[in-house]
Measured scan of single mutants.
Amino acid sequence: KELVLALYDYQEKSPREVTMKKGDILTLLNSTNKDWWKVEVNGRQGFVPAAYVKKL
């Protein structure tokens, strides 16, 4: 599985998104969309802005 690092805090704005804190390590589930990547964090799956994370 591929991991990404949260570069910034992000507060979810819809049920399809997830909240993350700067420094969190997230599991990358899908990065086919250039703007929104699907990740898993704390057992929850959802989208975060691709610009807010970096592949490890």
Rank of each mutant, 00 (worst) to 15 (best):
T27V: 14
G46Y: 04
S31Q: 10
L29D: 02
G46E: 02
K13Q: 15
E17Q: 12
V18E: 01
E40A: 09
A6K: 01
K55P: 11
N33P: 05
P49A: 02
N33W: 08
E2Y: 13
T27N: 09
E12W: 06
K21H: 11
Q11N: 14
N30E: 15
T32Y: 10
L7Y: 04
G46L: 05
L26C: 11
A6E: 00
N42L: 11
E17W: 04
N42A: 13
A6W: 02
K54V: 15
P49Y: 03
V41D: 07
N42K: 10
R16D: 12
D24N: 07
L56D: 03
A6Q: 01
Y8C: 12
R16L: 14
Q11W: 14
A50E: 03
G43L: 06
L29Q: 04
E40V: 08
D9V: 02
I25P: 02
Y52I: 07
W37E: 01
V39D: 00
Q11G: 08
L3C: 11
E17V: 05
E12M: 13
V53L: 15
Y10M: 01
S14P: 06
G43V: 04
V48L: 02
V53F: 05
Y10K: 01
K54T: 13
K22F: 05
K38G: 06
N42G: 14
L28M: 04
N30P: 03
N30W: 09
E40K: 06
E12T: 08
M20F: 13
E12H: 10
G43M: 06
Q45T: 14
L28P: 01
D35S: 14
A51H: 11
D35C: 12
Y52V: 07
K21G: 05
K34R: 12
Y10E: 00
A6N: 01
Q45F: 09
W36A: 02
V39A: 02
L56Y: 10
T32L: 10
F47L: 09
K55M: 15
E2I: 14
L28Y: 02
N33I: 06
K55T: 09
S31K: 08
G23M: 03
Q45P: 07
K1N: 11
T19I: 03
A51N: 13
D24M: 15
Y10T: 01
L3T: 10
V18I: 14
E12Q: 14
K13C: 11
K54R: 15
D24V: 05
Y10C: 02
R44D: 04
L56S: 04
N42M: 11
T32V: 11
K38H: 13
P15Q: 10
V18T: 06
T32I: 10
E2C: 13
L3G: 03
K1Y: 14
R44W: 04
G23E: 02
K21D: 04
Q11P: 08
G46S: 02
L26M: 15
G23R: 02
D9S: 10
A51M: 12
L3I: 10
V39G: 00
R16N: 15
G23Y: 04
K34S: 13
V48E: 00
S31A: 13
E12F: 07
K34P: 15
L26A: 09
K13G: 08
T27A: 11
L7P: 00
L3E: 08
Y8S: 09
E12G: 15
K55N: 08
Y8L: 11
Y52R: 06
L7S: 03
E2Q: 13
M20K: 00
K22W: 04
Y52K: 07
N33V: 05
N33A: 09
L5T: 08
G23L: 03
V41W: 09
L5R: 09
Q11T: 15
L7F: 04
V53Y: 01
I25D: 01
T32W: 10
D35V: 15
S14V: 05
G23N: 07
V18L: 15
D9C: 05
F47G: 01
A6T: 03
K1V: 14
I25E: 04
N30M: 10
L29N: 03
Q45L: 08
W37L: 05
E17N: 06
F47R: 04
M20H: 01
D35L: 15
F47E: 04
K34A: 14
S31F: 08
I25M: 07
A50I: 03
K21W: 11
D9T: 07
K38W: 14
W36P: 00
Y8W: 11
N33M: 09
L29M: 08
K54W: 10
E17D: 06
L28T: 01
V41T: 13
G46P: 00
K21A: 09
P15V: 09
T19P: 07
L28V: 06
R16P: 06
K21Y: 13
G43A: 07
L26V: 07
L7D: 02
A51E: 09
D9A: 08
V4Y: 12
S31I: 07
N33H: 12
D24H: 05
K55G: 06
L29G: 01
Y10H: 04
E40Q: 09
E40S: 09
Q45I: 15
G46M: 05
V18P: 01
A51Y: 10
M20Q: 02
L29A: 03
Q45H: 09
K54I: 15
S14M: 08
A6G: 03
W37R: 02
S14N: 13
E2G: 12
S31M: 10
D9R: 03
T27Y: 13
E17C: 08
Q11S: 12
E2P: 12
V48F: 00
L28A: 02
Q11R: 12
A6D: 00
V39C: 05
E2S: 11
N30Q: 11
N30R: 07
S31R: 08
T19V: 03
L3H: 11
S31V: 07
K38M: 15
E12C: 12
W37A: 05
R44K: 12
T27K: 10
A6V: 11
V4L: 14
L3Y: 15
D9Y: 05
T19S: 15
S14W: 07
E2M: 13
A51W: 09
R44Q: 08
G43F: 06
E2L: 13
A51D: 10
Y10V: 01
M20N: 00
Y52A: 09
W37H: 03
F47Y: 14
E40F: 07
V39M: 02
N33S: 11
A50S: 14
K38S: 08
K34N: 12
E2F: 14
F47K: 03
E17T: 09
L56G: 04
L7M: 11
L3D: 04
K13M: 14
E12V: 06
E40H: 05
K54D: 07
A51G: 10
Y8D: 08
T32K: 12
V41I: 15
K13R: 12
G43D: 08
E17L: 06
G46H: 02
N30A: 11
K21E: 06
D9E: 06
S14D: 12
L56R: 03
L5V: 15
I25R: 06
N30D: 15
N42E: 11
G23A: 03
L3R: 11
K38Y: 15
E12K: 14
K13N: 10
E12A: 14
L7K: 05
R16M: 14
I25G: 01
T19E: 04
M20E: 00
T27R: 14
A50F: 02
N30K: 07
T32D: 15
Y52N: 05
R16C: 13
K34E: 12
R44M: 08
W36M: 07
F47M: 09
E40P: 00
R16F: 15
V39S: 00
V53T: 05
L5Q: 12
W37P: 01
W37M: 04
E17F: 07
V18A: 05
V4T: 03
K34W: 08
K13S: 12
R16K: 12
V41H: 15
R16T: 13
L56W: 10
V53P: 00
E40I: 08
K34L: 10
D35M: 15
S14E: 09
R16G: 13
M20T: 03
R16V: 12
D24R: 03
P15Y: 11
A51V: 10
K21N: 09
K54L: 14
Y10D: 00
